[in-house]
C-alpha cells in the first residue's frame, strides 16, 4: 500500500515538474513578447512598425527569403530525386552530407561564406571583374540563406519518392508517355506535398536566420539590413519596443507558416 502511495506522489511530482518546465520555458516567453510589444500601447507599436527602416528590413527579409526558397526548391527537388532514384558511387556520402548545414554552427557557416566570397578570394575577384560585388550585398545574404536551409526540401521530398508506387510510372510509360510527360504528370504531383512543406519550412527558417547572415550582409540600413539583424541592433541600442514590434511581426509570420505545414501534414496522413 505504502509503495503505491509513494509512486503516486512521485508521479504527481513528475507531472507538475514537466508541465511547469514546459509552461515556463516555452509558453511564458512567447506570451511575454506579445504582451511587451503592446506595453506602450498600439500607437507606439504602430510607430515602430511603420518606421521606414523597420518595414524595409522586413520587406527585404521576405524578398530574399523567397528567392532563397525558390533556389532551394529547384536544387532540392533535383538532389532529392537523384539521391533516391539513381545508384552511383558517392551516393551515400552525398546523402550524409545533406544534413551538414543543420549540424554546422551558423556563425561558422557565415565565416565560411565570408572567406569564400570575400574580395581576396577567387570568386570575389572574378565577380569584381564582371563589375559587381557579392559580399556585403544582397547575393551574399541569399547564398547564406540557401546554405542554411538546404536540407529542408531534400529531406521532405525523399520519403515521398521512396513510398511512390512504381506501377504508376510504369503504366504511364506503357501507355506511351514520354519521359518528360511522365515526370510532370505522374512523378511531380506525387512529390508536390513534400516540396511544398519543405519549401515552407525553408522559408520560415530563412526569415529567422541570423548567425550566417550577420557576418556576410554588411548590415547597411535600408539596403542589406535584414529583420533579425535589425532586431539585434534595436536590442543593442536599448529600443526594446522597436525590437519587440518587429519580432512580433516576424514571429506571427513564422507561426502561421508552421501551423499551415502541420495542417498540411496531418491532412496527408489522414487520407
Amino acid at each position: 500500500m505504502s509503495s503505491t502511495l509513494q509512486s503516486r506522489w512521485w508521479g504527481w511530482g513528475f507531472r507538475s515538474a514537466v508541465m511547469l518546465y514546459f509552461v515556463l520555458l516555452i509558453v511564458f516567453p512567447i506570451l511575454g513578447i506579445y504582451g511587451q510589444s503592446l506595453s506602450a500601447g498600439w500607437g507606439a507599436f504602430a510607430d515602430n512598425v511603420t518606421e521606414p527602416l523597420a518595414w524595409k528590413a522586413v520587406a527585404l527579409t521576405v524578398k530574399l527569403a523567397l528567392i532563397a526558397t525558390i533556389i532551394n526548391v529547384l536544387i532540392g527537388t533535383m538532389a532529392g530525386w537523384v539521391l533516391i532514384r539513381y545508384r552511383f558511387p558517392g551516393r551515400k556520402l552525398l546523402n550524409s552530407m545533406v544534413d551538414l548545414p543543420f549540424a554546422l554552427p551558423t556563425a561558422v557557416a557565415g565565416l565560411m561564406i565570408l572567406l569564400l566570397l570575400g574580395p581576396q578570394s577567387p570568386v570575389g575577384q572574378w565577380a569584381e571583374r564582371l563589375g559587381f560585388t557579392i559580399l556585403f550585398h544582397q547575393p551574399a545574404i541569399v547564398i547564406a540563406m540557401v546554405f542554411v536551409t538546404f536540407p529542408f526540401v531534400i529531406r521532405a521530398v525523399q520519403p515521398l519518392l521512396e513510398e511512390m508506387d512504381p506501377a504508376e510510372e510504369e503504366a504511364a510509360y506503357t501507355m506511351g508517355a514520354t519521359k518528360a510527360a511522365t515526370f510532370f504528370r505522374v512523378i511531380l504531383p506525387n512529390m508536390a506535398p513534400g516540396i511544398a512543406s519543405g519549401a515552407m519550412l525553408a522559408f520560415s527558417r530563412a526569415l529567422a536566420e541570423f548567425g550566417a547572415v550577420v557576418l556576410v550582409a554588411g548590415n547597411i540600413p535600408g539596403k542589406t539590413l535584414i529583420a533579425s539583424v535589425y532586431i539585434f541592433g534595436e536590442i543593442e541600442s536599448d529600443n526594446v519596443v522597436g525590437a519587440t514590434a518587429v519580432s512580433v511581426i516576424l514571429l506571427t509570420f513564422s507561426f502561421l507558416i508552421l501551423w499551415f505545414v502541420n495542417h498540411l501534414q496531418t491532412r496527408r496522413k489522414g487520407r
Binding site: 514546459f22 516555452i26 509558453v27 516567453p29 512567447i30 511575454g32 513578447i33 511587451q36 520560415s204 526569415l207 529567422a208 536566420e209 541570423f210 548567425g211 529583420a227 533579425s228 539583424v229 532586431i231 539585434f232 536590442i235 526594446v240 525590437a243 519587440t244 519580432s247 516576424l250 514571429l251 513564422s254 507561426f255 507558416i257 508552421l258 502541420n262
Partner: peptide, 19 residues
C-alpha cells in the same frame, strides 16, 4: 506549441529571455 521554438528566430528567443 512544442514546435514553436523552431519558428522563433534565435535573436527573438534571446530577446524573450532578456524581457
Amino acid at each position: 506549441i512544442v514546435d514553436l521554438p523552431f519558428a522563433v528566430s534565435p535573436v527573438i528567443g534571446g530577446l524573450m529571455i532578456v524581457l
